[in-house]
């Protein structure tokens, strides 16, 4: 490993230590590591079981309801409340659609789940030539810095 990374890692640990030593760290209890209640099938609506505010998040539970808008626009919430998502989702759940390198389209892996919001169902080798042309920037978040073995046979 490289020296710079070792130094940075040390700085992070030190930073955390300093924050603790100065009494700046919150003293609230962490919430459950794993969601205590088993949920039924489908997209959950948190406000069915929870009222009020999700402790310390600044948001009500209702802001986490998995509405179709939440599912489509989860990016900001995934960044702000990653630890809330982690109570129910292991990273592998996200990796079905977001992996640096994966073997198959999410819609193939989840072929028996048409209810899921998987990107590009159907034959995408055709459609992508249309959708990619209209707006390539919408593809960048998943393909721009990932493994591109599959794309280079045509795009070089």
């Amino acid at each position: 490993m490289n020296r710079r990374i070792a130094l940075l890692s040390f700085a992070i640990t030190l930073g955390l230590g300093v924050l603790t030593a100065c009494g700046m760290v919150s003293t609230e209890k962490s919430f459950a590591a794993v969601h205590p209640q088993e949920l039924g099938a489908g997209r959950p609506s948190c406000s069915v079981c929870h009222e009020d505010e999700l402790k310390g998040s600044g948001k009500t539970y209702a802001a986490f309801n998995h509405s179709s808008t939440f599912v489509k626009d989860h990016k900001v919430q995934a960044g702000q409340d990653a630890n809330v998502c982690a109570t129910c989702h292991s990273q592998s759940f996200c990796a079905d659609c977001h992996a640096g390198k994966t073997v198959m389209k999410p819609s193939t892996k989840l072929g028996g789940r048409p209810d899921r919001a998987t990107p590009h169902p159907g034959n995408y080798l055709t459609m992508h030539r249309i959708e990619g042309k209209i707006d390539p920037s919408s593809c960048f978040k998943c393909h721009g810095r990932a493994n591109n073995d599959k794309c280079t046979s045509c795009h070089r």
Binding site: T27, S30, N147
Partner: peptide
């Protein structure tokens, strides 16, 4: 591919 592999330490306070 190893998509991820990490050790995690979770403190009892402050998430």
């Amino acid at each position: 591919n190893l998509t991820y592999g990490y050790l995690q330490y979770r403190f009892a306070e402050a998430n």
